[in-house]
Design a protein around this nucleic acid. Sequence first.
DNA 1: CGTGATTTTGAAGCATTTCAACTCTGGTGG
DNA 2: CCACCAGAGTTGAAATGCTTCAAAATCACG
Lengths: 269, 269
Amino acid sequence: MFNATPVLTPATPQAVRPVAMAPVARKAPAALPSTIDLQVDEGITQALALLHNTVHITRRVLHKGDRIYQVGERFVNLHVVNVGFIKTVNLAADGRDQVVGLHFKGDWLGFDGIARGQYGCDAVAMDTTEVWSMRYDSLLAACQEHPALVGVLHTAMSREISRDRDCLMSLCTLPADARVAEFLRYWAESLAQRGLRTDQITLRMTRAEIGNYLGMTLETVSRALSKLAKAGVIAFTDKARRDITIADLAVLQGFVRRNVAAQGKVRLQ
Amino acid sequence: MFNATPVLTPATPQAVRPVAMAPVARKAPAALPSTIDLQVDEGITQALALLHNTVHITRRVLHKGDRIYQVGERFVNLHVVNVGFIKTVNLAADGRDQVVGLHFKGDWLGFDGIARGQYGCDAVAMDTTEVWSMRYDSLLAACQEHPALVGVLHTAMSREISRDRDCLMSLCTLPADARVAEFLRYWAESLAQRGLRTDQITLRMTRAEIGNYLGMTLETVSRALSKLAKAGVIAFTDKARRDITIADLAVLQGFVRRNVAAQGKVRLQ
DNA sequence: CGTGATTTTGAAGCATTTCAACTCTGGTGG
DNA sequence: CCACCAGAGTTGAAATGCTTCAAAATCACG
């Protein structure tokens, strides 16, 4: 049933892609998760269920600002987000600190601790959050008996590696406006994949945090958002300007495409 | 002898590593790997030996420009670099392409393929290179019998995740000059950890490639290198300006420290 | 109903890109 | 052997995108 490759992937490119346009009717299509997104959600649910049935898990509820773990702390546990939003923050010896990752339901935390035996960053709850924690050694033991667990674990690590590379690519090839648009697109996509609606998303970060994550100043983030709103790609729905309406994800993606930096277009070699 | 130029050694991992510390004498200390670095080298050697003894491995020799795998190709194998230098290149649908990783002896390739069942990037040899390839499924099978293998595998994935975060941080918090310095520092450190000398390193990338990797133009890379040379932090040793002498790694690190961008210094929250 | 935090917006300054010209190197063929 | 050429690197000057600095508006919280 559950093994390395399949489950979470469409992986059957020849399968007929369901068109699934007709019955939707009233609602804006972009707001509803696509078929693929729903499959991802299904995969997350299955993975969490499998974990729940095979490994001893400790549930923890955290509030905004609470830390699941801190840099330097001895690595013992891995964690999975069940509810809420979590950011990982790297802080270097020289005082730099940097948001290096955002984590949603089903995402794992703490992989960076395996190699060195201690966590390499802080994991901070961005609002009320439920995290499942398990001992790494007992997870490994469980993997011996339930090979499907290995698939879940490796898939999660693999996905994180891919995700980090996409981030790197955005940082290197997109100008500020497009980077902000891409950030929103990714956030919305993540929600869609978890069965949540994406036409109305609530940012749980200040402009300063977003800027830190995207490698720009808070003013630039603010200007980019204003520009996106003026262009009709997004709209603000509350006074605090934390809630954002995305009429159509495809439009947002189109904005990113059109704004690929020139330097990114040059083919190497 | 210690030599950066990769002679294709006949890979006898269980061979006794000659310590070769005392008799060197004459050379500047910074050029020699530290104790910690030697431990890392030891770890790499042990990991390769373990792999060699427990998994069916296919050796492949590649030349500059050859691809170990390409984006979209079905994921079957994982790979480990035994000799040489390899870059991974992400190419997006919209034409952006981007160097997202550099890989040295002992580094793994292909983790990004696990989740989706196909590779997410290209892996390209930067010069003559020997790669060990193994089927992922047979590696998993071998892990059942040799639990130490799981440790090696997870450590490698964990290290890659940490490394990617460090890259992200450099991109976000360092100005161009310091980013180039940090790039050199990392390259030298990687050599040191593999028992190679670091006072004289040969870049296997054009300025354009370095710039692409670091998110800047080739002109900016060139200017940064010139500036570092003028400041005495590095020196060019050949006419083509590909060979670089690093008098003291600590000085290079100091340069990075002093050039942390202002935005990085602001503490979040 | 203040007070501090967050956000927006403008204007000036600066780092990096862009454009352009030039040098240098290494390889190829007459 | 040398002329020639393409590729790689350097360097300058102008253009530009982002940051910095500053001020005002708005929101959240006790």
